[in-house]
């Protein structure tokens, strides 16, 4: 019975995949060559890398909302985790075990390098692959590594400073976007300042996104130290 259900679901999934493939192949080609448009407008964007130009300038609205979604996800997690049910989980016996000294040493060596890589990715975003999201993910990975090595305490009760830091990147982006209203439209940067403005926004986003992504792992009443699968 269960086997039959599984096969039915698999067959339906395959059917859906086939239908999607057919629909995708039947789509007409794009009426506008967007890549050429981006190339033509690149000098006015303030950055030299087309992907960053699209993400932070031409389609900045999408990125703004993406950051908002990430912030909301964290807020939702905090709101759901703060209830009495989550607090009822008994402490992890693994937490009493001191962490591996080798891991701690490695984390101590790697964390500054990861900070450096995050800074590089942020700076490189203006003219080659990189940018705020990637840099933020590296920052978050550094925080998670430090947590797993037992060098960083869990953020059991996020204080006001941490909350402000979580929201700062989005707030800065929103401020810059609203500043464009004076020039006529949301997110319209003055061309002379666009480069500096984008760098400032990306720096703020890197900082906040790193903390948000790390917060998904570290925040909450109880986070395991030994790694889930160990």
């Amino acid at each position: 019975m269960k086997k039959a259900l599984q096969w039915t679901v698999a067959a339906l999934c395959a059917l859906l995949a086939a239908a999607l493939t057919v629909a995708l192949l039947a789509l007409p080609g794009a009426p506008v060559r967007l890549a050429a448009e981006v190339e033509a407008q690149l000098p006015a964007s303030g950055v030299a890398h087309p992907v960053t130009a699209v993400l932070l300038n031409f389609r900045g609205y999408d990125t703004l909302l993406e950051v908002a979604v990430l912030l909301l996800a964290l807020l939702g997690m905090l709101a759901a985790g703060a209830g009495p049910r989550a607090l009822a989980v008994p402490p992890d016996p693994l937490l009493a075990v001191p962490p591996d000294p080798l891991l701690a040493g490695l984390a101590r060596t790697l964390a500054p390098l990861m900070l450096l890589v995050a800074g590089y990715l942020l700076w490189a975003g203006a003219h080659r692959p990189g940018g705020a999201f990637q840099a933020g993910a590296v920052l978050a990975a550094a925080a998670v590594l430090l947590r797993l090595a037992g060098l960083l305490p869990a953020w059991a009760r996020p204080g006001r400073r941490l909350r402000l830091a979580w929201a700062a990147g989005f707030a800065l982006f929103l401020l810059a976007a609203a500043g464009g209203l004076a020039a006529g439209a949301l997110l319209r940067y003055p061309p002379d300042w666009a480069g500096a403005l984008i760098l400032a926004i990306e720096a703020g986003l890197t900082f906040s996104l790193g903390l948000i992504l790390a917060g998904l792992f570290l925040a909450g009443p109880e986070a395991p130290r030994g790694g889930g699968g160990a």
Binding site: A137, V138, G227
Partner: peptide, 21 residues
């Protein structure tokens, strides 16, 4: 870059965390 950092790295860590829980 995004896939390696966010898709594999961060999501993987979160899933491992969930398995531990």
């Amino acid at each position: 870059l995004a896939e390696a950092a966010i898709g594999a790295g961060l999501t993987g860590a979160l899933l491992l965390d969930a398995v531990g829980h």
